[in-house]
Design a protein around this nucleic acid. Sequence first.
DNA 1: TATCCTTTGAAGTCT
DNA 2: AGACTTCAAAGGATA
Length: 539
Amino acid sequence: MPQLNGGGGDDLGANDELISFKDEGEQEEKISENVSSERDLDEVKSSLVNESENNSSSSDSEQTDRRPRPRPELESYEKQREYFAEALRRQQDGGFFKGPPYAGYPFLMIPDITNPYLSNGSLSPSTRTYLQMKWPLLDVPGTAALKDSRSPTPGHLSNKVPVVQHPHHVHPLTPLITYSNEHFSPGTPPSHLSPEILDPKTGIPRTPHPSELSPYYPLSPGAVGQIPHPLGWLVPHLVSSRFSPHMVHHPPHGLHQTGIPHPAIVSPAIKQEPSGDNTSSSTHGKPSMPVKKEEEKKPHVKKPLNAFMLYMKEMRAKVVAECTLKESAAINQILGRRWHSLSREEQAKYYELARKERQLHSQLYPGWSARDNYGKRKKRKRENKPDSPHESNFSPQPKKQCVPYLPSEKMCDSPTSSHGSMLDSPATPSAALASPAAPAATHSEQAQPLSLTTKPEGRAHHPHFPLPGKASGSSSTSSSSSTSTASHPSISLLTRPIPFTTLPPSLLSPSSPFHQAALHSHHALLQTQPLSLVTKSVE
DNA sequence: TATCCTTTGAAGTCT
DNA sequence: AGACTTCAAAGGATA
């Protein structure tokens, strides 16, 4: 079993996390990635990605137009981000943080001022910007020092393009810093973090005066007042190793003492049941409904994100940038497939990150339970749809009209295979490279014929990567089965068809391998999954 | 305006 | 213990 030694020296028992395993679909994807016909697409896609990553100079219209424009509320952070970008650049120039990829702790996640966890605040892809920097680097120079014509601002740090957490630039574990306090325990600053900070004028790393640097929260009070510190909500916790963990102590609306909301706290005033009772604040202490009052006063602490959610947040922008698709459902399908196409090592990073986020979450909110959020949402959709006897007989998860989604996905999510290609092509080098630790499994799964269900086994625990903890495997399997029953590893389905217009004309050509693959897949779908296609009709 | 859709995973409840 | 349900993010689509 691969060691999840991410984070190096992490004492959190990284190995207890489980890794989900790719199903046959993954293999298909990887195989198909090397199909020559797809290579061009890959190149195109990678160019797109690179362009967004490099951001910068290229003002090329087409790509630029497709990039999500920076949201107004984000603009206000541009300077700040540029500063961090510059800081990063300087640090890199100085040879800092050139260590192993897992030296991911000198990163800071910069949330938007608006609470990214607020249900009403749209979380932009750049909501979390992970910046590689030294921990104490919180001194804020003038913006003039931010610009450095000598080198372009790293694209992934720019606000002008969707922030893509590129693995080459940012380790997936970096978001952990937003929650983790283990590395900032008072009195024991991370050893890899130099006490130096950048001189605001020269940009040269300097050793701060003790008076201006708190060991744990080096941001000077003045700076705090000037800009919201990205970790502002976390700082109080970092400052005190015995921070009051109970939500009860949090000021209303999930604000910390700093006034900066914790990402996981959603004010009931903002996210609450549409009960219509919004006058809680003014009518405090009404004895008539004490219980309800208490509940309303309780900040809504969101669940910590799981590995896939973290992955989604990181990769969504990238997928969106690559595709013309905009429906999140479609994007999520692609992301789901990409998730399965990740190597175990890559997944392990996210599992590790998720695990640490959970741990930190539990530290921050010891009394919190997922149960607290039960019923907070509007009633979940199709819970009561099983009434239809026909559907229940045919499909455990009634779905709306299923439409093959392969073409779009194929375009956007290169990995999606055409079955023909998969069968014709050998495992690709890239696949082997992508998942060096699972070559054998790859082979065994490649040969798998079309299957109606991706997950049952795809999500089963990998023989070499046993899932930890409770019956998460069965749990996840069962949970996913509801939605994946009708899905095929290579044929994703959407209740709404993805318009073919999302595909470039070249791919729509009948001679296009993608077109062929789509037809092939569609045909296979019709043959193998007739039931899934009828699931919806009755409503 | 609120909910649905869609994904995976964690954690809850239910049988 | 296992099956099942809910929620976490996201944002366009839909009612």
